[in-house]
Amino acid sequence: MTDMSFPELRTVGLDGMLISFGDTLSEPANRAALAFRAAVEREGWDGVEETSTSLVSAFVRFDPLHLTHETLRARLKELLQSADWMAADLPEGRRFFRIPTVFGTDRAPQLAEAAEAAGLSEQEAIRSLSEARVRALTIGFAPGQPYLGELPDDWDIPRQQALTRSVPKGAVVVAIRQLVLFSVSTPTGWRHVGQTAFRLFRPDSDTPFVLRPGDEVQFVATEPDKLANMETDPDGGAEWEVIA
């Protein structure tokens, strides 16, 4: 059943508009946010200065001295009415990354705990996580860091009650049917289940954020010694292809 209260268009501060397609994460709402942002970009409206997305919303920042709130609101409403955004095609230019990942061992020591919370054996958990093809739903928290999902229902597990003091960059953590691939070393309340050598944030590159919202990722199981041999490669042995 469709929630008739969405999409919702709201003013944010003096120079922002937020278009929300849901109040909880779902594949259709995330699809809508990504597709609608791409549509706004294609319109190329003079006065729009920036667009971005969160899990279920698109944000438009504009110059209110050049483009009035009333004009932008009218244009956004017209664009919203032009398509079924929940069923829209995802943006073009998306890529599919296969990233070698060590699951468990001392490199990712909370796999067993996460597997138990999901009601799976460790081998079942590795198979489930390594076979999943997840979408970069949004980028946030740290530079270039993706929230990836959604995983099968088994992985609707809560965050920890206490923080892990630090996980390394390249760590794969899990909670609430999502994975996060860390771009920096940081504390986390999510369980550390996998480790990669993939560098998400490359400040000296022309494209410092490697993954973009809408890209897809598979964390391919590999052995610790093989991962160690990839750690001098910024891609960490990853391969990618354009899918749209």
Rank of each mutant, 00 (worst) to 15 (best):
Q81H: 06
R37P: 01
L80K: 05
R61G: 04
A39G: 02
H69D: 13
E92L: 04
V56K: 11
T68A: 13
E70W: 02
R61Y: 10
V40N: 06
R75E: 06
A74R: 11
D46E: 14
A74N: 11
V56L: 07
R73L: 04
L72T: 06
G44R: 01
V56Q: 14
G44Y: 08
H66R: 15
E41L: 05
D63F: 11
F62G: 02
A87T: 10
E92D: 13
F62M: 03
G44D: 11
G93E: 11
L55H: 14
R94E: 05
E92S: 08
W85T: 07
L90S: 07
W45H: 09
E92R: 04
L65R: 15
G44P: 01
A35S: 14
L80S: 07
V56E: 14
G44A: 07
S52T: 10
L76D: 06
E43R: 11
S82V: 01
A39D: 00
R37G: 01
A88R: 10
R37K: 11
D46M: 04
L34K: 09
R73E: 15
L80R: 05
R37V: 01
L79V: 03
A35P: 02
D84F: 09
F59Y: 15
V48Q: 06
L67E: 10
F62A: 03
E50L: 09
V40A: 03
L76M: 03
T51W: 06
A39K: 02
R94Q: 12
A87Q: 15
R61E: 12
W45V: 14
A88L: 09
A38H: 09
L80I: 03
E70V: 04
W85D: 08
Q81C: 00
Q81V: 00
K77H: 13
A88K: 12
D63Q: 13
T71K: 10
E92P: 00
R94A: 07
A87D: 13
P91V: 07
L80N: 06
E43A: 07
S54F: 00
E49T: 13
M86S: 15
V60M: 08
V40I: 14
D84A: 08
A74T: 12
T51Q: 07
R75G: 08
F62W: 08
L90K: 08
G47Y: 11
G93Y: 09
F36T: 10
A83Y: 04
L72Y: 06
T53V: 15
R42F: 00
L72A: 08
D46P: 05
V48G: 05
A58W: 02
S82K: 09
A39F: 03
G44W: 09
R75T: 04
R73Y: 02
D89E: 14
W85Q: 05
S52M: 07
P64G: 13
K77W: 12
M86K: 13
P91H: 06
W45T: 13
A83E: 15
R94M: 08
T68I: 00
L72E: 06
V40H: 09
S82A: 09
H69A: 11
H66N: 10
Q81T: 05
D63T: 13
A35D: 08
S52F: 14
V60L: 10
